[in-house]
Nucleic acid binder design. Structure first.
Lengths: 184, 184
DNA sequence: ACCTGAACACCGTTCAAGT
DNA sequence: ACCTGAACACCGTTCAAGT
């Protein structure tokens, strides 16, 4: 048995790196967190990170995937609530991820991998909105209103709008979306 | 006369640095543009930049101020048009600045100077929107709708939504804002 | 397969020194 | 007042080498 075989099973070190990166990215921000700092947190040499991830953006995506999966799972709990409630819940939930949203947008231009991840995210959001509306809606109108709703929610998060201001905005968005499903 | 007195008058070198930074920030992005590269473009040593600006963020703000002043001046040309037309014009106009918007949001968390600049920007936008509405509007309602409008426009820019998709979104935003000023 | 030490080509920024 | 050379403490990433 090789001397450097760790007691840990295969992919566990990778998970540890993601866990450390996740906490640092959330707490200090992506740019402010060096790869070396992540490596130190997982007790490996800085360049070891590159055995598990192609580059820092790949590590970032692994963290984003983990966070997004959790949000999607937690969403099940409010899927039955009113649209306004759902939107408000989403804003509160994504607040922890605030700094990373801005980073994703900044890196979309420079990293094709981040751009692809971001596209998938918005496609998922649009699908969830469409699925929540009672009855069929004109596709063109739905696209417009879905755009308004998701960009507004994104703005509420990135601009850290407090609950008491975000609430009426969510109410207004929901009222607008629901009025589409009614005739007239 | 000192040997290193340049033929240029006082503040001209500063303006040259801003001009070089502006082009590089717009073309390559803020993070991708090194201070050294800006210095080289203005034919000075890298550290000379720090005689004119406190740090890289201060240089960024100088560029943002210049761009914003131009946008505000250009806005005079469409101030008389319909709200929908104004919004659509704004989206097109700010497209050149797309990358920098994401950078501002990312740096708001880390730089108080950028945060202050960003706050002033949004206050200006809200004031312009309020001024455009015919007749008085309930302040609470105005705040909500103004938020939706500015966040949506911001989203259209940062997500680089093409003209043919942005147009109906602008129309919908304007229709919503105008309905506020009418009774009912 | 997993990990390291050493190196590469950078960063933004500071400081003492020059004119 | 304006500018520079040299240095500081970093970056993200690569590569040859070790087990």
């Amino acid at each position: 048995m090789a001397r450097n075989r760790r007691p840990q099973p295969k992919a566990e070190k990778r998970a540890e790196l993601v866990a450390v990166a996740r906490e640092l990215f959330l707490e200090e921000g992506y740019e402010a967190t060096s790869v070396s700092r992540v490596a130190k947190g997982a007790s490996v040499a800085p360049n070891t990170v590159y055995w598990y991830f192609e580059d820092k953006d790949a590590l970032f995506i692994a963290v984003l995937d983990e966070l997004f999966a959790e949000d999607l799972a937690a969403y099940a709990e409010v899927a039955g609530a009113s649209l306004a409630e759902q939107a408000f819940w989403l804003v509160g939930r994504l607040r922890r991820v605030r700094g990373l949203v801005a980073t994703v947008h900044a890196r979309v231009r420079v990293s094709p991998a981040i751009a692809a991840w971001h596209d998938r995210l918005h496609a998922t959001i649009d699908a969830v909105i469409a699925h929540q509306l009672p009855g069929p809606v004109d596709p063109g109108v739905l696209a417009v209103e879905s755009t308004i709703a998701s960009f507004t929610v994104e703005g509420l998060i990135t601009h850290d709008v407090p609950d008491d201001e975000a609430r009426p905005v969510c109410d207004a968005l929901a009222a607008r979306l629901l009025s589409l499903a009614r005739p007239g």
